[in-house]
Every structure is written in structure tokens, then in C-alpha cells.
Design a protein around this nucleic acid. Structure first.
Length: 494
RNA sequence: GCGGGAAUAGCUCAGCGGUAGAGCGCCAGCCUUCCAAGCUGGGGGUCGCGGGUUCGAAUCCCGUUUCCCGCUCCA
């Protein structure tokens, strides 16, 4: 299983195209094709449903991408969201300038001949007293001057490029939530703990984008800011720590619910040294991508950092009145921040299977039915029989009001099934001669059709009038294995 | 940004100085009563782009862009 297989399938079947491909492509940008946009919308929809609609303590928000520039001063992005890089001229290794002095370094001591050794981080050499000036890895090369660049896209508000109108494309959706904290609190009369969810585009000038849609400069986030009263305690724990645990469990379970195999996800706790400036604790949900374990979602305890910062910079009070204690407090916030594009990639990779069926390779995307871009394909067994085609198209029109349903008659039935398998369509409906009857033989149709299951390739016979009810059950969560035995299987000729 | 690899049809790739190819896919027709069947026909590429060498360049040289793998990253 490698990424190229997925990239190729994604392009060939209309999931993901490279941006501006006819101009040679543009670095790190990707476009979602007809099936890709369905899949992505489905992911966002179930995320929203599960995290907003099904909970009584969550509300939604859609903030603008362009915000007041001071937002990014307050959030720390202008000052901290930079990676000053230096390169070793000898060994070509690259380092972050701000992390150079902390680590141990290789030293060729001029006092002790032939003595190459490692000096602990931040300390001078015991023998000659010199400090590190060369590359810490090879000890030989000079380092280039640090190149300071901010990871935010700078842009200009208004038609004239004046300094006063400089702002940024947001590097995270979170700040849109923090600056609206008080608006939402007032408008919705909320009580802690409660959360605000948002899905939207963010932009980062990544130094090295890559790995298909994994790291791109324009990407979509699905973020939650869950506000808690740090003075409360739940189950003997401070509320922020309790809710942090809860969100970690919930979010991990969410990926499993939509089909990600448990072997392919894991939790990774951040070490103290890698915590962001605002975080008290962070845990990542990682997925085993073709290129290795990588982050799918980060769940951070951001404490009261953001609300405090925005209160300070805006001069507005961003507090919550604790009725019991009769005091104003600044809530702590738990942030489950997921990548929509990364989730999509994980769902795609995880669903991809190659099977052998009758000596032939079958490629099948075993996407969860709720995520599958197409839900049902209606196929005529014979496209020469007008009655079959008419019936199939009528069924498609009927089912399409409720599920994304397509009709295809451009190949033999076997090929049509495989096409649908390759894009993960959970069910196919096939109309045959029995359905409509054979006037030449004076036979009347039985008005039944075949439903074929993607994963098992099993088939059942169902009356046309009963189709919607059967699909209601299948898409409502009833398994094929439970439902199929209650229906006859079609009489097949081989 | 540095090092390494690559760029030819929708996809996978062959061709490596002498008129652009294959398999698969796609489209049309015939055939076909349930799992990538068969037959016939068809569309589709100024060989990433720009220069150079040459009688002649997909092929050799230089530059450039994009992609992939590392360094880095954290949705």
C-alpha cells in the first residue's frame, strides 16, 4: 500500500486533482473533484452532526477568514508562529535556529588533539572553554544566517497596498471562536461547560508541504473550543483535565465509528518540551499513513491563554460569571482540532482494499456508508431492453430524493459493479428481465430488483416498492448480515 | 532552502539521435440474463516548459518549473 496508488485512484475516479494542473500544477494545492467533494462534505457533515447537533452543550460558528490584524498579535502568531531556519554548509542538515543551543553538540577540541566529543546542550567545552559556533551534528560546517519567515500568509485589505491595511489569512480557525466567545455566550445564554465548533479553511506557508493532501498550504480544519470552569471539579479532577480526557476518548472513538481500523490509529502524548506556548497538555491522534505515523488531530488544553490575550489586546472583558461562587472567571479551553483533508486521506487509505475474486483483482473502497460519495447505483442488466432501462431510471429518480444515486449502463454488469466498488458505493440495484417481464414470452414482471452489497458481494431480491424502506434500514445502521437473510436471493445462472 | 530521484495518452509504463508506442481505462456499435467476457471501430500526447548542439532531439547539453523521497513540520 503506497501513496501513489491512492493518488492515482483519486485522480482517475474524480476524487482529487492537482490544482492548476494544466499550468503544470501549483505546489501543495489540490482540488476536490466530483466524488472528492461528496466525500469531504460527508466527513464534515457527520463531524458537525456528532459534535454539534447530537450534543446539548455545543453550538456552531462560521467566522471570516480575514480578521483584524491585532488578532494575530494577541494570539502570538505574529511573534511565535515562525521557524527561523539555518543550514549547515558542510553536511547540509537544517536546524531551527531557536532550538540550536538547547541540544548537545559535536566538538573538535583544539586543546585536546584528535579528540572529537559531544558537549551537553548549552554548555561550553570543558577543555578549551569555547562555545558552539559550528554545526551541532557534524561539528565542521558553518551555519547560514537564520532565515526568519512567518508561516502566515500576509495579504492586504483594500485595493491600496498600504501598511495600515496589512492582515493575514488565518492560520487556524480557533481565533475566530475566541474573538466571538462573548458574542456567543450572550446570544445563546450558555452555561459552562460548553463548546463552539467551526469548520473552515486555514492557511500556512509551510516550509515543506507534501505527502499528497497531508500537508498543504491551504487546508480545512474542524475545530472545537470547549470552555470549562477550571475551578469546578468533575470525578475528583479539575474540570479542564476531566474534559480533556473525555474529548480525547470521544475523538478517538469517532474515527473508529466511521471505519478507521483500530490498529491504524494511536494516541501520542506531547512531551513537555514540545508543548506549544499556550498548552498545558496536548495529545495527538495519529494515523498510520503510507509515509508513517502522522498527526490526524491534536487535542490541546489551551488553558485561559487565548481569552486572556484577547482581553488584554482588545480591552474587553472576556469573562464568565460563575453564579454559584458569585465571581467572574476566565474559562479554560479544550481544543480538539482535526484536519478535514487529513481525515479524508485517512478514511480513503483505510478503506482501500485489493481482493482476489475469481482470479481477478478487485479494488474496493470499503468506506463507511455515511461517508461514501455515492450511496446507490442503479444498473440495468440489459440496456437494449427499453423497459429495463426505463424502470432503472425511474428507480434512480426516486431514490435520488433521499440518497445520492447514480445510473450507469455503459458496460456489462460485472464491470459496472467493479466501477462502483472502486469508488466505494455501498449498494447497487440491478433491474433485469424478471423485473419487467418478457413480452415475447408473455411473461409479466415480478417488479422485484436485486440489491448487491459492496463488501460481501451478496445479493437479495426486493420489491421496487420496498426499496426505500430497505435502504432506510441499511443506511440507518442495520448491517447487511442481519438484513439479507430475511430476503430471498436471486436465482442466478452461471 | 539543501541533497537524491522523476516528468512521454485518463492510469501504469516502454522508446534513449532518424515519421510518437503498448497494456489497462474511456467512447460508439454488435453481442451478452448478475461480478473488470468477446468482436469491430474510435477519440486522445506540440514527449513539463525555455534555450542550445545537430541535417534531424522524447532521446545529448544548459536553464527552469512541478512532483516524489529525506532534513524540517504538528490540522
Amino acid at each position: 500500500m503506497n501513496m501513489d496508488t491512492i493518488v492515482s485512484l483519486a485522480k482517475r475516479r474524480g476524487f482529487i486533482f492537482q490544482s492548476s494542473e494544466i499550468y503544470g500544477g501549483t505546489g501543495s494545492c489540490w482540488d476536490y473533484g466530483p466524488l472528492g467533494v461528496e466525500l469531504k462534505n460527508n466527513i464534515k457533515r457527520v463531524w458537525w452532526r456528532d459534535n454539534v447537533h447530537l450534543r446539548s452543550d455545543m453550538v456552531g460558528l462560521d467566522a471570516s477568514i480575514l480578521m483584524h490584524p491585532t488578532v494575530w498579535k494577541a494570539s502570538g502568531h505574529v511573534d511565535h508562529f515562525t521557524d527561523p531556519m539555518v543550514d549547515c554548509r558542510a553536511c547540509k542538515r537544517r536546524f531551527r535556529a531557536d532550538q540550536l543551543d538547547g541540544g548537545p553538540w559535536v566538538h573538535y577540541c583544539p586543546v585536546k588533539a584528535n579528540n572529537k566529543f559531544e558537549v551537553p546542550g548549552g554548555e561550553p567545552c570543558k577543555h578549551c572553554g569555547s562555545r558552539r559556533t559550528l554545526c551541532p551534528e557534524c561539528g565542521k560546517g558553518e551555519l547560514t544566517a537564520p532565515r526568519q519567515f512567518n508561516l502566515m500568509f500576509k495579504t492586504f485589505m483594500g485595493p491600496v497596498e498600504e501598511d495600515a491595511s496589512v492582515t493575514y489569512l488565518r492560520p487556524e480557525t480557533a481565533q475566530g471562536i475566541f474573538v466571538n466567545f462573548d458574542n456567543v455566550l450572550q446570544a445563546m445564554r450558555l452555561k459552562l461547560p460548553f463548546g463552539i465548533a467551526q469548520i473552515g479553511k486555514s492557511f500556512r506557508n509551510e516550509i515543506t508541504p507534501g505527502n499528497f493532501i497531508f500537508r498543504t498550504r491551504e487546508f480545512e480544519q474542524m475545530e472545537i473550543e470547549y470552555f470549562v470552569n477550571p475551578r469546578d471539579s468533575v470525578d475528583g479532577k479539575p474540570a479542564d483535565e476531566y474534559w480533556h480526557e473525555r474529548w480525547i476518548e470521544d475523538r478517538l472513538a469517532w474515527y473508529g465509528r466511521y471505519g478507521i481500523r483500530s490498529d491504524n490509529v494511536r494516541l501520542r502524548e506531547h512531551g513537555r518540551d514540545e508543548l506549544s506556548h499556550y498548552a498545558k497538555r496536548t495529545a495527538d491522534i495519529e494515523y498510520r499513513f503510507p509515509m508513517g505515523w502522522s498527526e490526524l488531530e491534536g487535542i490541546a488544553n489551551r488553558t485561559d491563554f487565548d481569552l486572556k490575550q484577547h482581553a488584554k489586546f482588545s480591552g474587553k472583558s472576556l469573562t464568565y460569571f460563575d453564579e454559584e461562587r458569585k465571581e467572574h472567571i476566565i474559562p479554560y479551553v479544550i481544543e480538539p482540532s482535526a484536519g478535514a483533508d487529513r481525515s479524508l486521506l485517512a478514511f480513503l487509505v483505510d478503506a482501500y482494499r485489493e481482493e482476489e475474486v475469481r482470479g481477478e483483482k478487485r479494488v474496493v473502497l470499503q468506506l463507511h456508508p455515511e461517508l461514501a460519495p455515492l450511496k446507490i447505483a442503479v444498473l440495468p442488466l440489459l440496456k437494449k431492453r427499453e423497459e429495463i432501462v426505463k424502470t432503472a431510471q425511474a428507480i434512480r429518480g426516486d431514490l435520488a430524493r433521499r440518497w445520492v444515486t447514480v445510473y450507469d449502463d455503459t458496460a456489462a454488469i460485472g464491470r459496472l459493479y467493479r466501477r462502483q466498488d472502486e469508488v466505494g458505493t455501498p449498494y447497487c440495484v440491478t433491474v433485469d428481465v424478471q423485473t419487467v417481464g418478457d413480452p415475447d414470452k408473455g411473461e409479466a414482471g415480478d417488479r422485484q430488483v436485486t440489491i448487491r452489497d459492496r463488501d460481501s458481494m451478496g445479493q437479495i431480491r426486493v420489491a421496487i416498492g420496498e426499496l426505500a424502506a430497505v435502504f432506510e434500514r441499511l443506511f440507518g445502521g442495520e448491517s447487511w448480515a442481519a438484513l439479507a437473510p430475511r430476503y430471498p436471493s436471486p436465482s442466478q445462472k452461471t
